[in-house]
Every structure is written in structure tokens, then in C-alpha cells.
């Protein structure tokens, strides 16, 4: 029998583990809607995680770490945008190249900067629960006591949904992915929109990455994103390029990851490997078309 306490812990950790995916996923969604596929979400997240950890460790201020993470991702995002738009490079290949480059650079940077001090705790963000919600018995603390970035992420997700649906910016982004020619005819710059969208992906991914390093576990490890960026992309496909469903997919992947810790704690004997694999397996089944017909933006991966 599952107790209310363990259910609450499970929900709380699902949300926590879904947060980096959610941020990367929202960012990637906007960019894909504008017609650019960034395989480099993984690298952008890793950049944010690394720079956030370095900034926080060097200044002792996690908020400066966060700022540092967001700044550091800009060159990466602009490189991706330049490759995908101006140079018309293969978006998939260039994204994978960026991921390899970032993995190497952050690993090297980590060893050089932290070296033997690698076991030092890096200052990170504290947790916070919204008033009233945090006072709910059993669930209040377990579910709602989260690093404030979680709430920031939710707010950005809602804001993004509103902007995409109700504003001229949302329309322009959507059109850049569906009918770039029409956008061009209307006098807007397709490349401009796409540069902006990729930069947004970078900032969101970096936010997710800093959450991983200085929000969630207060340390950096080499290649710590471990495929979270690819899961974020899978969530966008799973979500059929709609924001509500993408958020749902991220929560599902988060819950699948949370099972890794929850089931053994409940004494359920399931191979650990299967549980670690579960989010990837779900993502695979999702992209395999088990969620119905997919309707990608018409000009996705086609440079303008």
C-alpha cells in the first residue's frame, strides 16, 4: 500500500526532476516552432550547469552563478543560430558537434578549475514553498517546498504559452516555422526570428542546467546532464509541438526518473538499469508514434 507520505514525496521529486527537462523543452519548443531543431539543447544545458557552478563557487552567490550560466550560454546559442541560419549547416550534425565540444570543454574546465577541490560543496539555492500551499498537511512540504527556480520555470512556461497563443510575436514564431516565405513577404526577418528563438532555447536550457548544478544537487559532475537535453527534445515531439502536452511529457519523464529512487525505497525489486532506462524508453515509444500522428512545423530543419 502506498502511503500518502510516499506519494507526496514521489510527486515532489517528479516535479523537481522534471524541471530541467521542462525548461529545455519549453526553449526547444519555441525554437522548433520557428523552424530550427537544436540538437544542442544537451550542450546548452551542460554549459549552464558548468558556468552556473563555477560562478556560484567563485562568488559564493548562487544568484551570480545563475547569471553567469545565462551569460555563458549566449556564445553557444549564437554559434548554433549562426550555423543553422546563416551558414545553413545541417542542424542535427552541427548540434551534435556542439554537444561534443561542450562536453569536452566543460570536462576540461572542471578539472582545471576545481581540480582536487572537486568535492567542495558549491553554494546553491535554498528551497521555498508558496504561502498556504506549503502549509497543507503531508503534501505541503513534500510537494511544494522546491527551489524557487521551479516556480520561475512554471511561470515562464505559462508566459510562453500565452505569448505564443495571443501575441504577434507568437504568430511570427509560428509562421517562421510553417510559412517562412510569407513571413519574409510581410517584411519581417525570418532569420531574425530564428536567431531570437535559438537564443531563447539557449537561455532556457541554461536555466535548466543551472537548476541541475546549483539548484538541485549543489555540485557539478562531468557530463552531468546525461541526456536530459535529448529527453527535452523527445518531450517536444511527444507533445506534438504543443506547449501543454510538452509540459505533460516532461512531467511524465520526471516521474519515470523519480521511480528510480522511489521503488527501491518502497522495497520493490526491479532492476536498477530498467528504471534508469525508463524515461528514454518512454521517450522512444513516444517518438515511435504511439501518441498519434505527428505534425511537425512544415519548415523544421529547413534553413531560410
Amino acid at each position: 500500500m502506498i502511503s500518502a507520505e510516499s506519494a507526496a514525496v514521489f510527486i515532489g521529486s517528479s516535479i523537481r526532476l522534471a524541471t530541467p527537462l521542462l525548461m529545455g523543452g519549453i526553449g526547444e519548443l519555441v525554437s522548433e516552432r520557428a523552424g530550427v531543431l537544436n540538437m544542442s539543447v544537451e550542450g546548452m544545458m551542460l554549459t549552464g550547469a558548468f558556468a552556473g557552478a563555477v560562478g556560484s563557487w567563485a562568488t559564493g552567490q548562487p544568484i551570480l552563478g545563475l547569471a553567469f550560466g545565462l551569460l555563458a550560454v549566449l556564445p553557444v546559442a549564437l554559434l548554433q543560430a549562426w550555423l543553422s541560419n546563416t551558414l545553413r549547416a545541417n542542424q542535427i550534425v552541427s548540434g551534435i558537434g556542439i554537444n561534443i565540444l561542450v562536453l569536452g570543454a566543460t570536462t576540461l574546465g572542471y578539472r582545471e578549475i576545481f581540480g582536487e577541490r572537486s568535492s567542495d560543496e558549491i553554494p546553491g539555492f535554498g528551497k521555498w514553498a508558496p504561502p498556504f500551499l506549503g502549509d497543507i498537511p503531508v503534501f505541503g512540504q513534500a510537494v511544494f517546498l522546491q527551489v524557487w527556480i521551479v516556480y520561475l520555470g512554471l511561470a515562464i512556461a505559462i508566459g510562453t504559452a500565452l505569448v505564443l497563443r495571443f501575441t504577434a510575436i507568437g504568430l511570427a514564431v509560428h509562421a517562421a516555422g510553417m510559412e517562412p516565405r510569407a513571413v519574409d513577404k510581410s517584411g519581417l526577418s525570418v532569420r531574425g526570428i530564428r536567431y531570437g528563438a535559438v537564443t531563447f532555447t539557449g537561455l532556457m536550457s541554461a536555466l535548466g542546467g543551472t537548476f541541475l548544478s546549483i539548484g538541485d544537487i549543489h555540485t557539478f559532475t562531468e557530463g552531468m546532464t546525461r541526456g536530459a537535453g535529448y529527453l527535452a527534445i523527445a518531450a517536444v515531439i511527444f507533445g506534438n509541438w504543443r506547449i501543454g502536452r510538452t509540459i505533460g511529457a516532461c512531467l511524465l519523464f520526471g516521474a519515470a526518473t523519480a521511480l528510480q529512487f522511489q521503488l527501491p525505497a518502497m522495497g520493490v525489486d526491479i532492476p536498477n538499469a530498467l528504471l534508469i532506462m525508463l524515461p528514454y524508453l518512454l521517450a522512444f515509444l513516444a517518438v515511435a508514434g504511439l501518441v498519434g500522428r505527428q505534425s511537425a512545423p512544415a519548415s523544421l530543419t529547413v534553413p531560410w
Binding site: 545553413r88 549547416a89 550534425v93 552541427s94 551534435i96 558537434g97 561534443i100 569536452g104 570543454a105 576540461l108
Partner: peptide
Amino acid sequence: VPSAVVRIIQGIIVVALAGAVYWID
């Protein structure tokens, strides 16, 4: 020498080649 150096070299090669298609095309 950290093996990450070799990884960086590989990453640069891939990015450069992906971008260079422009000049070839």
C-alpha cells in the same frame, strides 16, 4: 593531458565541417 582535449578537437572538427558546407555549396 586530460582526454577531454581530444574530445574538444573532435567537437571542433564536427562543427567546422557542418559549417563549411556553406562554402562548398
